[in-house]
Design a protein around this nucleic acid. Structure first.
Length: 457
DNA sequence: TTGAATTGTCATTCC
DNA sequence: CTGGAATGACAATTC
């Protein structure tokens, strides 16, 4: 804010002085040239500036009260003749360090006290300081060089920011595509075996339909981008993740239908007579036990216990229907216990899948947030560099203006002031004085009368 | 065969 | 109190 204010002010100053200087100065800064009201009665025409008294009307603020002048001092006051309301409590400032008047547009009416701004140019805009800041910030950019910043800015403009860090991001599209394809294949395989895996992932038996749905096949599969395509139905499940509030979640996660449990209880029951212990050795199963080979443990358990209905029903039926189903059959305590375990495990399995998907979604969104912030950071860094560049140009321009003004000043005898002995000083009220070098601001403040006495007419 | 990734299960908490 | 969702931790399985 301060820098921009300075810039605008200085642009106004340059505009006002463009008559004898570079007429396109303002344009050089690449900034807004919105004119700022400047008191046009400011001039140096009363100073000994034979050839340029009309050329720098706005650089040097008028309104300085020309009161007593001490003849002994050689300070020259460059002010307008109609200055009236400003006392001499300005802090003289060497113009070599002045960048711009602190209140260039307040010269016509100094109702508000003008704060002393000693040497704002040298203190705020010292080029070396700016460079140091710039380098420091760049060093703190965690590898964000200026070139990188520009590059990032380009990426921002081309809305391709997702490429950031994509090389090491697990959310690469390739991985997601691989996941989806494998998921589809596994799903079809599951459908072949009626009780294959994914118990109770869906009550929908339309396997073919589901397999065509994006990200819906095979239940949870690794791959971040696939997760992004998932639709959730229950956004309320993400209370604890405020950063995800803007994301629509389908809490059901399009559970896989690979099981496609058509109810054929007689099929598994007729084929599987293995005990729970036997199924633990399924790797050694003979070919006739393909069903077991492709069955989940609970399915094998169910077959072993001769559960007369599918695991899919056990898991996915509503409580009422589930209880009715149990009531319809005469089941032993062991069977009932197994059925309840199957239901609990099946539901928990789906819950675990959903939980993992949510977790990955959270990671994805956080990574996206990081990328967004990085782009913002790069953009701001680029803007900063542009501002620094503009300030540097302004300083150079100001220095040239200083030289031009100083070299045209003449004393009472028409002689130029030696730069080694005099310098232009800038006061807080906007006036400009030519003062002998070595006279400090403190001295001026202690002896304000001298400055006024030395005002150059 | 090994290790990483994935999936299933258990325990627990919470609603 | 029950059912079930959520989730960390660990085991089993797959790749």
């Amino acid at each position: 804010m301060a820098i921009m204010e300075l810039q605008v002010s200085f642009i106004c100053l340059v505009n006002a002085t463009s008559g004898t200087t570079d007429s396109n100065t303002a344009g050089n800064f690449g900034l807004s040239t919105r004119p700022t009201p400047i008191n046009q009665d400011v001039s140096l025409h009363q100073a000994s500036m034979p050839s340029c008294s009309q050329d720098f009307p706005q650089i040097f603020n008028p309104q300085l009260e020309s009161v007593s002048i001490t003849p002994r001092t050689t300070m020259l006051r460059l002010s307008s003749s109609n200055s009236t309301n400003v006392n001499s409590t300005f802090g003289a400032t060497n113009l070599t360090g002045i960048f711009l008047p602190p209140h260039i547009n307040s010269s016509s009416n100094n109702v508000t006290s003008t704060p002393i701004l000693p040497d704002p140019f040298s203190t705020l805009l010292e080029e070396s300081m700016l460079d140091e800041i710039s380098l420091l910030d760049l060093a703190m950019e965690e590898g964000f060089s200026q070139a990188q910043a520009s590059q990032l800015e380009d990426e921002l403009d081309s809305d391709s920011g997702l490429s950031l860090d994509s090389s090491h991001s697990p959310a690469s599209p390739s991985s997601s595509e691989t996941s989806c394809s494998s998921a589809a294949s596994s799903s079809s395989t599951s459908a072949t075996f009626s009780e294959e895996g994914a118990v109770g992932y869906s009550t929908d038996s339309e396997v073919a339909t589901v397999e065509t749905e994006e990200g819906a096949v095979g239940g949870y599969q690794p791959g971040y981008s696939k997760l992004c395509r998932m639709s959730y139905q229950d956004p309320s499940q993400f209370h604890s993740l405020p950063q995800l509030d803007s994301i629509s979640h389908n809490h059901t996660y399009n559970l896989p239908l690979s099981s496609a449990f058509s109810e054929h209880p007689e099929l598994p029951l007729s084929s599987g007579k293995k005990t729970v212990r036997d199924k633990q050795n399924s790797k050694l199963q003979p070919p006739q036990d393909l069903l077991d080979k492709h069955s989940s443990r609970d399915e094998r358990r169910a077959r072993a216990m001769k559960i007369p209905f599918s695991n899919e029903k056990i898991i996915n039926l509503p409580v009422e229907e589930f209880n009715e189903l149990l009531a319809k059959h005469h089941l032993s305590e062991a069977q009932l216990a197994l059925i309840r375990d199957i239901r609990r495990r099946g539901k928990n399995k789906m819950a675990a899948q959903n939980c993992r998907k949510r977790k990955l979604d959270t990671i994805i969104n956080l990574e996206q947030g990081v990328q967004d912030l990085r782009r913002d950071k790069a953009r701001l860094l680029k803007e900063k560099m542009e501002f620094i560049r503009s300030i540097r140009q302004m300083k150079q321009k100001m220095q040239s203006l200083y030289q031009e003004v100083f070299t045209q000043l003449r004393d009472e005898e028409g002689r130029p002031y030696p730069p080694s002995e005099y310098s232009l000083q800038y006061s807080a009220d906007g006036s400009v004085l030519i003062m002998p070098r070595g006279l400090t601001t403190a001295e001026q403040n202690r002896k304000p009368e001298k400055k006024q006495k030395d005002k150059k007419k």
